[in-house]
Amino acid sequence: MGCFGFLKAMMFVFNGIIFLAGAGILGVGIWVKVDSGSIFSFLGKIEGAPDEFNQVINVGYLLIATGLLLLIIGFLGCFGAIHESKCMLMLFFIIVLAVFIAQVAGAVVILVFRPLANEMFTKLGKAALQNIKKDFGKNPDTTGLWNTTMTTLKCCGFYNSSDFTDSPYYVNNINHYPPQCCPGLVSSCDQSAAESAPRVSGCFPKIREMIDSNTMVIVTVGLGVAVLEICAMAVSMILCSKIKSRED
């Protein structure tokens, strides 16, 4: 296999992986939008949530758009290399270049506006506390969504168990907290039980911890994707040049 054949094979394999990744991301995006009980839908229904957060919960649409874009890129790269189509390879190059520029711009925006994210989550916290104290134990939808979230993430309240104080659940259950706040205890979860039980963090600190602990992984993956995009653009241009020289 010559250099030209090797480049074609690498282009096919690489873009085949991109195509499969796009299909996976598209599936996740559709699942997020269809699953009305997802955490994103839940947070979007919190009364008083900051307006900025309404954009964040549209992550399902973002995943769908990203998946479709990756499917198109993978298709153009694979078939452009197999059929030695300069048009498809050039279109592949243009799309990947646009994605690369968008990624750089997005990284800059995140760095510049990161302090605003803390303010947004502070507003969300106030709205979530109001939601708990007003509807938890009275509104079946709110109660079910909070219970599902706490059970899944193994957390208690937005910040801690005291968030449930004076809520309908707390009042109707003789000053007791939800059982998720007292893991491993068979008895009822009152204040003393919650204090003696293994400490359960709030859902918000749990989510922030998950994000912070995976920041380095996200950055590494982002840099790796950027390098692969540069290599893909370089290979597509080399193939275009080779195809043109062969045609001449």
Rank of each mutant, 00 (worst) to 15 (best):
A226M: 15
L89M: 15
I207Q: 02
V108Y: 11
A193H: 10
N147P: 02
I82L: 13
M233Y: 04
S85I: 07
E119H: 08
F158I: 07
A193G: 02
I174N: 15
R199P: 00
G48Q: 04
R246E: 15
C87Y: 11
F93E: 07
I132W: 03
P140C: 02
A102E: 04
G184W: 07
V221Q: 05
N58R: 14
F93W: 14
S41L: 01
T149G: 01
V59N: 03
G144K: 06
F40W: 13
F204E: 02
G22S: 11
C87T: 14
F14P: 02
S41I: 00
S236A: 15
I132K: 03
A98H: 06
F79V: 12
I94W: 13
C181M: 02
I57M: 08
K242W: 02
N172Q: 14
F121H: 00
L153N: 04
I18V: 15
A226C: 11
A226P: 01
N175S: 14
C181P: 04
N54C: 00
N147F: 00
I39H: 03
T122S: 12
S167C: 07
A226E: 09
V59K: 08
L89T: 08
C189M: 08
P168T: 08
L63N: 10
Y159E: 12
I18H: 06
G202Q: 06
K126R: 09
L91H: 05
Q130I: 04
P179H: 09
I94P: 00
K244D: 14
C189R: 07
G22C: 10
A232Y: 07
V225T: 13
F113T: 09
L26D: 12
F113G: 00
C155R: 03
P205S: 06
L43S: 01
N175H: 14
A23P: 01
V200L: 03
